[in-house]
């Protein structure tokens, strides 16, 4: 009768973990390929506004970033929104130098195609953003992009 119960007493063998490295490597490659290195250490609170009509910036090597927002370390820097260029806080007057410096780092043929991406916290007042834009105009850096998060437009479905 118990034709199939012959092995009943034997304990089940351990699950083989030999393929675990393969799985982990697969994950590793996925993350290596899909992600990009973080450009800077953010020293500001950055909660970007949402928008629907957005475009992707094509060439990341031709984009410079300007961050504006409330410092994360409010005890040290206060709550007034500040500008961050690369890894340091800066003032509005530093923007011209920064843009010119960044432009000079690139080959001459592509200097006209540089886009400045403004990564601004949504609670920031427009005053400081406008000041930054005026500085950008002065150095003829006219292509800008307001960095936003993508919002799903319910009307489109």
């Amino acid at each position: 009768m118990s034709k199939f119960k012959k092995d009943g007493n034997k304990s089940t063998p351990a699950v083989s973990t030999a393929s675990l490295p393969d799985i982990v490597f697969m994950l590793l490659f996925f993350f290596m390929v899909t992600t990009v290195m973080r450009e800077v250490d953010l020293k500001i609170k950055l909660n970007q506004p949402e928008a629907t009509e957005i475009e992707k910036l094509e060439d990341r090597s031709l984009v410079d970033y300007i961050y504006i927002g409330e410092p994360t370390n409010t005890a040290l820097y206060g709550t007034v929104p500040k500008i961050q260029l690369d890894d340091d806080f800066a003032t509005v007057d530093d923007i011209q130098d920064y843009v010119i410096q960044k432009r000079a780092d690139r080959p001459e043929q592509v200097q006209g195609a540089i886009t400045v991406s403004l990564k601004v916290d949504e609670d920031t007042k427009m005053g400081i953003v406008t000041d930054v834009k005026q500085q950008l105009r002065k150095v003829q850096s006219l292509k800008i992009s307001y960095s936003t998060r993508e919002k799903v437009d319910k009307n489109k479905f």
């Binding site: 993350f31 899909t34 992600t35 990009v36 290195m37 973080r38 928008a51 009509e53 957005i54 475009e55 992707k56 910036l57 990341r60 984009v63 886009t115 991406s117 403004l118 834009k133 950008l136 105009r137 850096s141 006219l142 292509k143 800008i144 992009s145 307001y146 960095s147 936003t148 998060r149 993508e150």
Partner: peptide
């Protein structure tokens, strides 16, 4: 060390 944030945004010309 990596971020998923992509460079999407509203493009404008000053």
């Amino acid at each position: 060390t990596t971020t998923m944030d992509s460079s999407w945004g509203l493009s404008r010309k000053l």
